[in-house]
Computed example of a mutant assay.
Amino acid sequence: MTLKDMLFAVSLFPYLGFLYFLTRSPETPRLALIGFYLLLLFVVVTIPAGIYAQVELGESLANVDWLHGSAEFFLTLSNLVVVLGFREAVKDTLGTTETTSPPDEF
């Protein structure tokens, strides 16, 4: 196991702690919380995809476009859900409705 692999494995513990405390906070927007949990799905999908690329195709995951893109989809999905969750929370906090035109002043 390389140093890079060990650091990756160890980095999961702080993230799991982050999720633990975020889950316990009643102020966390539910949709954003789901997005942060979806990031774990990205990790769960990426690890086997990387192993498959290395063992079966003899390439790094980054060099197998269809497989890399499929795994990265879950990262994009988690980011989108986090943003939508916080967007909803901001809208609720401000008590405004969505407008179609930009504000006149900045």
Rank of each mutant, 00 (worst) to 15 (best):
L57G: 07
F86A: 03
T96H: 02
F74Y: 11
L67C: 10
T93N: 06
Q54M: 10
A62D: 15
L80K: 02
T96R: 09
T100V: 10
L77P: 00
F86Y: 15
Q54D: 15
L94V: 09
V55D: 08
R87C: 11
A89P: 03
A89N: 04
H68T: 02
D92A: 15
E98R: 12
A62I: 10
S60G: 01
E88K: 13
T100L: 13
S60R: 15
A71D: 03
L80M: 08
F86Q: 03
A89I: 00
E59R: 14
P102G: 08
V55C: 02
S70T: 10
G95Q: 04
G58T: 07
R87F: 14
E88L: 13
F73S: 03
W66V: 08
T100Q: 12
D65L: 13
V90P: 00
V83N: 02
N63I: 00
F86G: 01
N63S: 13
A53E: 09
V55L: 11
L77A: 14
L77W: 06
P102K: 08
S101L: 12
T97I: 06
S70E: 01
A71F: 01
L75V: 00
L94R: 09
E88R: 14
A71L: 03
T93G: 11
V83Q: 02
T99R: 11
E88H: 08
V81F: 06
L67Y: 00
L75R: 13
Q54S: 15
L94E: 03
F74T: 02
S101P: 05
G95S: 03
V64R: 14
A62M: 11
G85P: 04
T76F: 10
S60T: 11
D65K: 15
D92F: 03
E56M: 11
V82T: 10
V83S: 05
L94M: 08
E98S: 12
A89T: 02
G95V: 07
T100K: 13
G85I: 12
L57K: 15
F73T: 13
T76M: 13
A62R: 15
